[in-house]
Write a protein that binds this DNA or RNA. Structure first.
Length: 632
RNA sequence: GGGCACGUAGCGCAACUUGGAUAGCGCAUCUGGCUUCGGACCAGAUGGUUGCGGGUUCAAAUCCCGUCGUGCCCGCCA
């Protein structure tokens, strides 16, 4: 089923296409070119518009206005069968007007029939997507930057899922890094006891240890600790993993509070000890992507020759370095090598030999969370059609190398299926949110995801108390707080870098989560007053449809599927956020100007609009992880 | 030095991929609207040489070239 807006657009396309073929066969227009010429104009011009006559005019040497007249004359008899009722000519633009009664009727009917599936798509049916986020080091609490990553990943997963993809939500845990060694050293030597949420406390220890690194003795001890951890099979290795697991458990609480879930947690140490790294290197050597360097700077290392990447991207035209190290001369693997192995597995080039156990039996999304480990079930999470990595834009270069390695292995197809969703990292006016130096422990706030949510909830409760009617439960207040944060974090293009300002992020007015949720709650109130939550689409009298706020709102509702497909294909939750605002403000104008309850014969029709609005906006709020509430 | 991203009203953003009508939206500011389905709202107003300079085009925020500014990346770190 295709939403009526798309059907109408296809209809205009078909009219144009046929006319161009018949009348101007010498003008070759591709399908995409015609679609690109079609847009939604200002209301006074009509419901759909095309600038195609400008191009025809150029090719034929005529005036756009005359060409448009020709087009309208010759297609007039084809109208009236679908949604497009008439065509107009304004300075050469073709403006189409819908048969509003038919359009509204079909749209509302579709929304009510499809319910929770309204606006969704099947473009990804039969395909598997693996989305990785936020992959925070297991030695600190999530700060607001990590939260942004997780919210982007969560929303993209939701969008892909709504497009029919089977989605695996995965979190990569780097438990072998120097940061864990430093934290472990602090845990063992500083003599402090946890006096707060474990991840926050451990993050503080990490900052303290970092300030002690100028002490050579401390540094030496940490290096030794790190080496023991990497080698595995020691008390230190077990301690490191245990510490990381405790931290991840605390981080998991934060994720759950925000409604962020995963299917599986992949531990870096498990990639190494399952032997997958070794297999991956074998494949890379066979396919010519990795070579052993016998002399020079990288003597003794396994490297990827960057000259081979020439032509893939301008970045490789004049590389500063000749090679990138995969395996160090001492035999240990770099991050790139582990990442390569991991992504070979994700894309099905390498079979996994992971063992999984349950980390959490049932999350609030109703599904279990698995984790890799030394023992457990043998499940296969890999072998995805697309692998999406939500990673900061600072890591563009390493991600590009990773992707390019598939190209030089002769697997351009896999390179194309590996997507880096780059987002601009969040900073504060006073500087970066570094976990190492403690930027997240700001002057006025602790910039953790936990404290942000806590403060947001307090503000929602306070706001509710200030308003005349005190409505909404504690759960609803929490939902509004989450909605406010999620919307604020997702409303702009991920690539945009954000200077975080606490008060602005928690704005409840204008373009905000609470605005959208408020409109939903008000719509709900109208329904309660109407005491008629069910309407039968077939019995509604659509004679009351007018060209006004009601029609405009329905037009917006009708765009849902196209909006989702665009947002999902570009991995851009902000497109959904913008659409939520369009729906909300459309509804707001509608109810300010139109009486619903007690409007006589028009009542059923208007109730149907309210129901459809709630259904559409509810479905799309959930894509961003916002849960609509009945009262707030 | 090389590369990548970004630059649109006082502030925060959209439109750029695929060039089209008067560059949209929110905040802030100003004016008006609650005995009428919830004022976390609505109506209206003010505010723009789209960083700058060229080029292509009937048409440029959008494409091309140059330039300036900001951030990031270029390690046997992860």
């Amino acid at each position: 089923m295709s939403c009526s807006y798309k059907v109408a657009k296809d209809e205009l396309y078909a009219l144009i296409d046929k006319w161009v073929r018949d009348s101007y066969p010498q003008v070759q227009l591709r399908k995409e070119e015609i679609y690109a010429s079609i847009s939604i104009p200002k209301t006074e011009f009509g419901d759909l518009s095309s600038s195609v006559c400008m191009r025809i005019a150029k090719a034929s040497g005529k005036k756009p206005y005359d060409v448009a007249n020709e087009m309208i004359d010759q297609t007039r008899k084809g109208l009236g069968k679908g949604y497009i009722k008439e065509l107009g000519n304004a300075n050469g633009y073709i403006n189409a007007s819908f048969d509003e009664k038919r359009y509204v009727k079909d749209t509302l009917k579709e929304v009510i029939e499809l319910g929770d599936k309204y606006g969704f798509s099947t473009v990804g049916s039969g395909k598997k997507a693996m989305v990785e986020y936020p992959s925070v080091n297991p030695n600190k609490a999530w700060h607001i930057g990590h939260l942004l990553n997780a919210l982007i990943g969560d929303s993209i997963s939701n969008m892909l899922s709504a497009c029919g993809y089977s989605v695996n939500r995965e979190d990569y845990i780097d438990d072998l890094g120097i940061q864990v060694a430093e934290s472990l050293w602090g845990y063992l030597n500083l003599g402090n006891k946890p006096d707060k949420k474990f991840d926050t406390w451990l993050g503080e220890q990490y900052v303290t240890v970092n300030r002690m690194l100028s002490d050579e003795k401390v540094k030496k001890e940490i290096d030794a600790l790190m080496k023991r951890m990497e080698e595995g099979k020691s008390a230190e290795a077990d301690n490191g993993r245990k510490l990381a697991e405790d931290c991840v458990k605390a981080q998991f609480e934060t994720a759950s509070a925000y409604g962020i879930y995963h299917d599986v947690m992949m531990w870096e140490s498990d990639i190494v000890r399952t032997g997958m790294l070794e297999q991956a290197m074998k494949i890379a050597v066979e396919k010519g992507a990795a070579v052993k360097a016998d002399e020079g700077k990288y003597s003794g290392c396994m490297v990827v020759d960057l000259k081979m990447l020439k032509g893939i991207s301008k970045e490789f035209d004049n590389p500063n370095e000749e090679s990138k190290v995969l395996i160090r001369s001492n035999g240990t693997a770099t991050y790139l090598a582990k990442d390569l192995a991991f992504h070979m597995w994700k894309l099905g080039l390498l079979k996994g030999s992971f063992r999984y156990h349950m980390f959490a039996e049932i999350q609030e999304d109703g599904k279990p969370l698995y984790s890799t480990g030394i023992s457990g079930e043998s499940i296969e999470f890999g072998g995805a059609d697309i692998a999406i990595n939500v990673i900061g834009s600072a890591q563009r270069y390493p991600q590009l190398i990773l992707k390019s390695m598939f190209s030089i292995m002769g697997r351009q197809d896999l390179a194309e299926r590996l997507v880096h969703v780059a987002y601009g990292e969040i900073s504060l006016k006073e500087g970066s949110l570094s976990g190492r130096s403690g930027g997240w422990m700001g002057k006025d706030h602790t910039y953790t995801a936990d404290s942000l949510l806590e403060d947001a909830r307090d503000r929602v409760v306070k706001k509710a108390e200030e308003s005349k009617k005190k409505v909404g439960t504690a759960d609803e207040a929490m939902a509004v707080a989450i909605g406010a944060i999620r919307f604020a974090f997702l409303r702009t293009n991920p690539e945009k870098k954000i200077i975080f300002e606490w008060d602005k992020a928690l704005s409840f007015e204008g373009s905000s989560g609470p605005y959208c949720m408020y409109m939903y709650a008000r719509a709900n109130s109208i329904l309660e007053k109407a005491m008629a939550k069910k309407v039968e689409p077939d019995k509604i009298d659509f004679g009351h449809v007018e060209r006004g706020y009601d029609f405009e709102l329905v037009k917006s509702i009708g765009k849902a599927q196209e909006v989702l497909e665009k947002a999902a294909s570009e991995y851009r939750p902000d497109i959904i956020a913008e659409y939520l605002m369009e729906l909300s403000s459309g509804f707001s104008k509608f109810y300010e100007n139109t009486k619903v309850v007690g409007s006589g014969e028009a009542e059923q029709y208007r109730i149907a609009i309210v129901i459809s609005f709630m259904q559409a906006i509810g479905n799309f709020m959930r894509l961003l992880g916002m849960n609509p509430v009945a009262k707030m």
